[in-house]
């Protein structure tokens, strides 16, 4: 469903992504692991069109999305949450979700229904009229997910959705992601807590220095010495 072929991104001459080739089947749930600076967020930014790509192609359902404007990529079915929560703080919870709910062609009534349903899934129905900026941090995390749910995406890019949360809250958020998206939605999940990845994603990608160094079952990767090596910054065994 998502085919990434030879993807390259450069910042000031430094290769942030050095030719990634990844294939994601429809509905797959895949963890994206790697140390800081390994290119995880840059991969997400490249898919959603926020950074210019220096080479390679990205295809969604056979259609090239690399080079499209971010709003076109979103319309093609890519949803996204951010590492540091990013909301419209001055808008109400419902108004955060409403403009992206349903399709562009949907009537305002359908959009409202879709938005309310998404808030319901995330457990935010009661807070729908307060400003997003007044929500607690855990609720803000859930609102980001509700927004993605309302978008009914083909692909969700979740960038550390449990960052800054307690263990119990993290588990809740992972459970929410797991149940909120149907089998049609593929999920790419960036996480530092390997346990959270394991709970949601049977398969994981391991990035280091802008390259794909492993693509395997998450459980295997957890046991694998090389993961620890990558995380703790020791040299990769060649």
């Amino acid at each position: 469903m998502l085919e990434i072929d030879g993807l390259k991104v450069r910042f000031d001459g430094v290769e942030a992504l050095a030719g990634l080739t990844i294939s994601i089947p429809a509905g797959a749930r895949i963890g994206v692991l790697g140390p800081n600076g390994s290119g995880k967020t840059t991969l997400f930014n490249a898919i959603s069109g926020l950074v210019a790509i220096a080479g390679g192609t990205i295809r969604l359902d056979g259609r090239a999305i690399s080079g499209l404007a971010p709003h076109q990529i979103a319309a093609a079915g890519v949803a996204r949450t951010f590492q540091s929560v990013r909301l419209f703080h001055r808008l109400s919870v419902l108004d955060n979700v409403l403009p992206i709910a349903g399709t562009a062609a949907a009537g305002s009534h359908d959009a409202r229904e879709a938005a309310l349903a998404a808030l319901d899934v995330a457990g935010l129905s009661a807070q729908r009229d307060i400003l997003a900026g007044d929500l607690g941090f855990y609720d803000q995390r859930r609102l980001e997910i509700a927004r993605a749910v309302a978008q009914r995406p083909r692909l969700l890019l979740a960038d550390e959705p449990t960052g800054g949360l307690s263990q119990a809250e993290s588990d809740q958020v992972v459970a929410l992601i797991s149940r909120a998206f149907g089998p049609d939605t593929a999920i790419l999940l960036i996480e530092h807590q390997v346990a959270a990845v394991e709970a949601l994603c049977p398969r994981s990608l391991l990035l280091a220095e802008g390259r794909l160094v492993a693509d395997a079952a998450t459980s295997d990767m957890r046991r694998d010495r090389s993961l620890a090596d990558v995380y703790f910054g020791t040299r990769l065994a060649h």
Binding site: P70, F88, L91
Partner: peptide
Amino acid sequence: RQIGEDPLLAEVHG
């Protein structure tokens, strides 16, 4: 209003 507060986020949301 979304564009006014955060154009980039609005753009990412289609």
